[in-house]
Design a protein around this nucleic acid. Structure first.
Lengths: 262, 262
DNA sequence: GTGAACCGGG
DNA sequence: CCCGGTTCAC
């Protein structure tokens, strides 16, 4: 089965590209972040008309996550947010069971700048996420965490680690949190299949970062062993970040395509 | 020769439709109002590439007028603003001689609401315009005044005169000013060729006014006798106010197409 | 650089 | 209802 994760930076703006991605990749499950749309304004009809159904956890202006699956299939035990979330008013987490796999769709706090108030909130939020998953997740169970983690795991995941070291998305406290999370028994599926891969998933809109290949790999897929064993490929749809013939520009993130053996 | 007048409500936004209009109507002179663009940001290149040249008198955000003619032809004695303008910082008037006709491209102050401070400014501005034209214009000379007058001349120029009487664009003091202006020897060219015409040129964006035919004729072409005699037709391009297959929506004004015998 | 919200202007 | 500017977030 195929799971795609994509930070769309406004679903309403990106809708034609999202529908195009569904046609192009034919995922079984699409996890969206930064939908920036409240649940009552979610474009359910457009997905329905194209043969899909969406489970949403959104808000106006900021954040917002959603999971899209084929009509006829079901998401089970849907959970919005997580117990202990220090900012439960922000729609950042959507969890559901799909074909027996517990899938968590995450949009981690960005943190703006190391040392800022928002950065401290990011660390505390990751601590709370850790506490919840330590409780909820057993390594023997099939779990898949996907989304925008707003942390690049290692030196190979940043276009220039010396430029980025200590900065937001690449600071030691953030790395500690990510490593602690993976200590629960989660493996970075992209790195598993591409030990020397240099694919990025995010490029700043400014300064021609995409063209200059100044990217970061901050969109991740983490799996417990039962899921990691099934992982055949993880690929970045870098073309989606290009302008293309769409009536709307690209998101600043590229979709992450995860293929698991059935 | 054909002169088109159009309040575009932002030239940058409406540029594709303006270029389309040039192709569709092939005017000899296009007078634009509410370009809302400063002279250094005017899209000269786009007009040049399509075979046209623009003489501009613009500002950022508000107002702004421009005159577009074929490359190779010239506008002579270009005048920006007029002597005695009480608000010379607002780009509302552009005058130039084209093929021997003195053409004044006007964007009259809207006035917001009868009795308001802006309404009083509108009346004083029309008084100043009158004083200048009384000085500058002789009825024996070929003059053509076009643009957004923000005044509907008579009952036939308003979808419901009883609703509009006394309101902005249809108040007695505004009518006095317009009649006094025409007293200089100017004729309403649309009314000359269509004595019983009921074409409107502006419809509020709100409340489906266009669809309900709730319009006003506030975009005018006034001519001295030497020009009026040459007038063959004045038509409103109502189709331009429709949505169409353009990538941008319409202006709230429709273009006015004036045909003069050569 | 891009998006959404809010505001003033029409 | 639409446009431009501003502010804020990322």
């Amino acid at each position: 089965m195929r799971v795609v994760s994509w930070n769309v930076n406004s679903l309403r703006r990106r809708l034609p590209r999202v529908l195009g991605l569904l046609e192009r990749h034919e995922p079984d499950l699409l996890c969206l972040q930064e939908t920036k749309v409240s649940d009552d304004e979610f474009p359910h009809q457009d997905f329905h008309d194209a043969g899909w159904e969406a489970v949403v956890h959104g808000q106006r202006t900021y954040n917002g996550v959603a999971m899209v699956h084929r009509r006829g299939e079901q998401l089970e035990d849907v959970q919005r947010g997580f117990p202990g979330d220090p900012v439960p008013e922000e729609a950042r987490v959507l969890v559901a069971t799909f074909r027996g796999v517990r899938v968590a769709n995450l949009y981690v706090i960005n943190g703006q700048e190391v040392g800022s108030e928002k950065y401290e909130r990011k660390l505390r939020w990751l601590d709370a996420l850790q506490a919840w998953l330590a409780e909820a997740l057993a390594p023997a169970d099939p779990w898949l965490l996907v989304g925008d983690f707003n942390v690049a795991p290692g030196d190979e995941d940043v276009w220039d680690p010396e430029v980025w070291r200590g900065r937001i998305m690449f600071s030691e406290p953030e790395h500690e949190r990510l490593e602690r999370l993976m200590g629960l028994g989660l493996e970075d599926l992209y790195r598993r299949v591409h030990p020397d891969g240099r694919d990025f998933t995010w490029w700043d809109y400014r300064g021609g970062a995409f063209h200059r290949k100044h990217g970061l790999r901050i969109d991740l897929a983490l799996g417990t062993p039962p899921v990691a064993r099934r992982c055949r490929d993880v690929a970045v749809d870098r073309d989606e970040r290009k302008k293309g013939a769409w009536e709307v520009g690209p998101s600043d993130h590229a979709p992450l395509v995860v293929d698991l053996e059935d």
